[in-house]
């Protein structure tokens, strides 16, 4: 026996269910952010942001961690963005679909699914020990670069593929070379998608703990060069909480981290809107 329901009622039920799903997803996000900010914001003062930690982080601030986070992530993006976008350009514009391109793509997908602790272990063995870089901004940045590379590459590839073929034909028909077509037409059109991929990578990098704790180290000092050891905010938060040093400062660090990620996303969105308005 099925209960007879008319089409209109069915439609309403579906709409309500979908609406609930969206609401739950949003509520979870809002709840997490609210908890972090609620517990963390009281600790966040100007001196918390601008001072070095004292007594292992029980007192003082997180200035070295902010600097470390920015340094490690920036290095990762500087390395991963050109490599990822370059690979994407090669795959889409310079080669046809072959066994090799499928292997590259499959490899990238596998790499994207590897847990970050594995990257941390790899970075420790390869960059820290084998290449003798030690615990440093350089080791951490390169490890993060390897980790976010597949994301950057795949999103860039999708964005480039989405550029209409007619743009390329129009460009070629004026006598433009492949490289001119890529730089003048394809990349500007694909830029929003490419930037989205890079931002996703930055988000992953900024919040990463496992991959950097083994590679950048956990020094409490401000890194003075890319060869200095560093402690990112995520690592600092982890150590403060894990070793029960100070939950108050752990939450404070987490709040700053969340605000930083929100700020990066907002800034990227704003830049994209401006760029698109200009391009039309």
């Amino acid at each position: 026996m099925t209960i007879p329901i008319d089409v209109e009622t069915k439609h309403r039920i579906v709409v309500v269910l979908l609406w609930l799903a969206a609401l739950v997803a949003l509520a979870v996000l809002a709840f997490i952010i609210a908890v972090v900010l609620w517990n963390g914001l009281p600790a966040v003062t100007l001196s918390f942001l601008l001072e070095s930690p004292r007594d292992m982080g029980r007192a003082g601030g997180i200035f070295p961690m902010v600097v470390s986070t920015v340094a490690v992530t920036l290095l990762a993006v500087i390395v991963a963005a050109p490599l990822g976008v370059g690979t994407a350009i090669y795959l889409t514009e310079y080669t046809s679909e072959t066994a090799l391109t499928r292997v590259i793509r499959f490899g990238a997908e596998c790499l994207a699914g590897v847990p970050s602790i594995i990257f941390g272990l790899f970075g420790f063995i390869f960059f820290v020990i084998q290449l003798g870089m030690g615990w440093s901004v350089l080791s951490g940045g390169l490890t993060l670069a390897v980790m976010i590379l597949p994301t950057v590459m795949r999103t860039a590839e999708e964005a480039i593929r989405a550029v209409p073929e007619s743009f390329r034909e129009a460009s070629f028909s004026t006598g433009a070379s492949r490289w001119q077509t890529v730089t003048q037409v394809v990349l500007p059109s694909a830029l929003p998608g490419i930037v989205t991929g890079v931002i996703l990578g930055v988000g992953r990098g900024v919040g990463e703990t496992a991959a950097v704790i083994f590679t950048a180290g956990s020094s409490l000092h401000i890194p003075t060069s890319i060869f200095s050891p560093a402690r990112t905010m995520a690592v600092h938060f982890y150590i403060l909480a894990r070793e029960g040093i100070s939950m108050r400062h752990a939450y404070g660090t987490a709040a700053v981290l969340v605000i930083l990620i929100l700020a990066i996303n907002t800034a990227a969105n704003w830049l994209m809107l401006r760029f698109q308005a200009k391009q039309g």
Partner: peptide
């Protein structure tokens, strides 16, 4: 470059009017 083409559907590039026309000379 010596034999320019116009396609069935308009294919303006996502640039300004000026930059579209200046595309060939710039290239």
């Amino acid at each position: 470059q010596r034999m320019a083409m116009v396609f069935a559907l308009p294919t303006p590039l996502p640039k300004s009017i000026f930059d579209n026309v200046a595309y060939g000379p710039r290239v």
